[in-house]
Design a protein around this nucleic acid. Structure first.
Lengths: 226, 226
DNA sequence: AAGACACAGTGTACGGTAGACACAGTTTCA
DNA sequence: TGAAACTGTGTCTACCGTACACTGTGTCTT
């Protein structure tokens, strides 16, 4: 049983033996709850098992190892992709809605960022999200590779905004960058200036909005040139 | 001694006691070598210490913990930011050169992606990179927050491309997505189509190029509207 | 009906991890 | 010439993922 099978294979009830007391779904949910409340570092086989009232070795009956549990958590947390087809106005408002939905999701589960770096197996929900985004672009005059590149750019934007928000949260910026910039302002004049000017509109949704509109503008311009 | 001090404080030679046999720089370099060769998972205090010929506890004389060592590795691997002022043509070619330079860097040290998720302290080199990018935008008609948003969008694009490349490397795509799409093509028709069409031009630099040009187009359009 | 079989959850054990702490040796300052 | 400050070492603890043997349970086959 590998990660692929855990994510994509359906689990028929076993023919013989005692009934399983858990399901992979419950396992994933327990992990997600733990990660939401205490961060990804708190997700250990021990604690997940505790939350479900079994010993940690019991979890290995459902999942071959921790990596696969995390993968399962990610795909479960991602959930069903949103329906976009009812949104009027073509690909642009649809992609915007898609991006916002994923942004909200990632903000609700910030640990998912850390859990989705490096090589991993794509789960059904995650692939469903990609499918929806590509569906929004179905009529656009670009080849498939370029459509995929647009989707990649959007996910990159989401991640970047959330990570920047994590880096520059109120207390961090106060005791981090500010501490540096106070003593070394002459070495980073542009950073100092940019930070000073951005004090006013500090909402992170605004940062997402701005970058997102630039990307969509760029795509629109590209399409209008074809 | 916290992460901030490790990254930003200079370490004067101690007044008394035996000479330190190492420097924080050597520590960082040993960690980087290890991570480059065997991945971030191979970086343990034990193995870093071994590579330097000391016991693992000796490393704690230079660095308060592993997190700080990783932060140091990241900032060291990032290195001095490239000089952009000599590049003609205004902010756009400069930002493009900046992005390409960072892309090359991240490809040379793929572990840096995993090491730069979540809350962390920004080091001097990393801040220097941001400074250079903002410098390229110094004359642009945007406020500082928007300039910062552009930089964030560019870093997001770099990360997204590299992670996508890791996910969809040749063998992974063959035994991962392809395996799914073969049996469930009807569920993900747009993904199937996009992947088929993108078979031809599979170079990842092309993916970076495309997304990057869209972003820069979007920024340019925004500036032309001001 | 009864045994064989497949499976679930438990308990124990192991190698590896980060890091705390006490200690011995070394260099410099008072 | 101590005393003080500092380095690297050895030992120890708590925790991690996970391998493996075992007991108990439900079902299929004879």
């Amino acid at each position: 049983m590998d990660a692929f099978e855990v994510l994509w294979g359906e689990r028929g009830a076993p023919r013989r033996g005692p009934r399983p007391t858990l399901t992979v779904g419950e396992l994933a949910k327990a992990g997600i709850d733990l990660a939401d409340r205490e961060g990804l570092g708190a997700v250990t086989m021990q604690r997940v098992a505790e939350a479900l009232g079994v010993t940690k070795m019991a979890t290995y009956r459902y999942v071959p190892g921790k990596d696969e549990l995390i993968a399962l958590m990610v795909d479960t947390a991602m959930g069903e992709p949103p329906e976009l087809s009812h949104i009027d106005g073509g690909w642009r408002p649809q992609l915007k809605a898609w991006t916002m939905a994923m942004f909200d999701l990632m903000r609700a589960h910030p640990w998912a960022l850390r859990a989705t770096v490096g090589r991993r197996v794509t789960g059904p929900n995650e692939l469903g999200w990609v499918e929806k985004a590509l569906g929004a672009l179905a009529e656009a005059r670009m080849d498939g590779g370029q459509k995929m590149d647009v989707v990649v750019a959007l996910t990159g934007q989401i991640r970047a905004i959330i990570e920047q928000a994590a880096d520059t949260s109120e207390e961090d910026i106060a005791e981090g960058w500010a501490k540096v910039l106070a003593t070394r302002a002459e070495r980073f004049p542009h950073v100092v200036k940019a930070l000073a000017e951005s004090e006013q509109h500090k909402s992170r949704d605004q940062g997402l909005e701005f970058g997102l509109e630039r990307i969509l503008d760029g795509v629109e311009l590209y399409l209008s040139r074809q």
